[in-house]
Amino acid sequence: MMNHTHDAHEHHHHHDHGVFHIHAPAGKMRSAFFLTALVLAVEVVGGLLSGSLALLSDAGHVLTDIAAIGLSWYALKQAERPSNQRMTYGYHRAGILAAFLNAITLILIAIWILVEAYRRFQTPETVQPIWMFISAGIGLVINLSMGLTMHGSDNLNVRSAVLHMLGDAAASAAVIVGGIVIVLTGWYVVDPLLSVLIALLVAYGAWRIARQTIVILMEGTPLDVDLTTVADAIRSVRGVYNVHDLHVWTIASGRNALSCHIALDGASTITESQSVIREIEHRLLHLNIGHVTIQVEDQNHPHDQAVLCAASDSGEGHHHHHE
């Protein structure tokens, strides 16, 4: 007997997390896309006029910003599409794929910055600080305003786009500081030094995003969910003898799902088992799990006592036996 609940019934929908349009509607992403294109134009011109690698590397970063925000904009529109027979969970994972691609592009651009900075350490080049100030100042204002407007989202795809914006704002601030140092000291090597710091900042943030998206794409247990706590919460419900074949995964950022088999303590009517399931759903919502699928069994149903479903051939056979 399979008991399937969608987001733990209608009356619990206010618990649903990670709905894309709440934190960053597509309209905001569209505006961010065109503002970022303006920043790119300003920084490319400023970088060429000043000869600053820090500014040009920041312009390279802005180019990935445009791709990131464009992908996020696309993902937001995809997430609004309803589920269908081919995509039963809808299109929310489009955002996870976009976030992963964003992270990879950031890591690649960071490597390029490091290579170019190494070349400039060998042969420092003259830099014109005035154009650094103008271009970086414009980039700082625009990126900071966009990043702070969309900051605080629990959606991984939006967070990756915000990371681009705030990272670029920090890079622009560093370029301005570097320009001041060059004016006061004439120490042109500060320009590639800043580029290295920008690259490390970008790479660190990108790796964190990539790691989270990989866990989601591999159907791993969400980072904010402790499997032992989940199993204990299910066992603590009155009438539940044990739980096994327990799986928790993420459909998209903030949208966690669970499936499991529960053995009931003694004979139960359908009404009694539904009461148990509703109580389990309620407790799991407080553990940030909204989409729950439960198979109900009695204590005599043959199964392994392990909470996790075995990955071996014998485990698969056991799983089919349950079905």
Results as ranks from 00 to 15, higher is better:
Met1Arg: 12
His4Met: 12
His9Met: 07
Glu10Asp: 10
His13Leu: 03
His14Ile: 09
His17Glu: 03
His23Ile: 00
Pro25Thr: 01
Ala26Asp: 02
Ala26Asn: 01
Met29Gly: 08
Arg30Cys: 10
Phe34Thr: 05
Thr36Tyr: 04
Thr36Pro: 03
Ala37Glu: 01
Leu40Asn: 01
Leu40His: 00
Val42Glu: 03
Gly46Ile: 06
Gly47Arg: 02
Ser50Tyr: 07
Ser52Gly: 06
Ala54Arg: 08
Leu55Phe: 06
Ala67Gln: 11
Gly70Phe: 01
Ser72Gln: 06
Trp73Pro: 04
Tyr74Gln: 08
Lys77Asp: 07
Glu80His: 05
Glu80Phe: 02
Arg81Ala: 08
Met87Leu: 08
Tyr89Asn: 00
Tyr89Met: 01
Leu97Asp: 05
Ala98Cys: 10
Ala99Trp: 01
Thr105Ile: 11
Ile107His: 10
Ile109Ala: 06
Ala110Glu: 10
Ile113His: 12
Ile113Cys: 12
Val115His: 08
Ala117Thr: 09
Tyr118Gln: 14
Tyr118Arg: 15
Thr123Asp: 12
Pro129Cys: 11
Ala136Ile: 04
Ile138Asn: 04
Leu140Arg: 05
Ile142Lys: 01
Ser145Lys: 08
Ser145Asn: 08
Met146His: 06
Asn155Gly: 04
Asn157Tyr: 03
Arg159Glu: 00
Val162Asp: 01
Val162Ser: 02
Leu163Tyr: 03
Leu166Ala: 03
Ser172Pro: 09
Ala173Arg: 04
Val175Gln: 10
Gly179Tyr: 10
Ile182Phe: 07
Val183Arg: 09
Leu184His: 12
Trp187Phe: 14
Tyr188Cys: 14
Val189Asn: 12
Val189Phe: 13
Leu193Asn: 13
Leu201Asp: 07
Val202Tyr: 05
Ala203Leu: 11
Leu217Ile: 08
Thr221His: 08
Thr221Gly: 11
Asp226Gly: 08
Leu227Met: 15
Thr229Pro: 07
Ala231Pro: 11
Arg235Gln: 06
Tyr241Gln: 15
Asn242Pro: 09
Val243Tyr: 04
Asp245Glu: 06
Leu246Met: 09
Gly254Glu: 00
Asn256Phe: 00
Ala257Phe: 01
Leu258Trp: 04
Cys260Leu: 05
Cys260Trp: 03
Leu264Met: 15
Gly266Ser: 10
Thr269Asn: 11
Thr269Val: 14
Val276Ala: 07
Ile277Cys: 10
Arg278His: 15
His282Asn: 15
Asn288Gly: 09
Glu297Ala: 05
Val307Thr: 12
Leu308Tyr: 06
Ser312Asn: 12
Asp313Pro: 11
Gly315Gln: 10
His318Arg: 12
His321Pro: 14
His322Asp: 15
His322Pro: 15
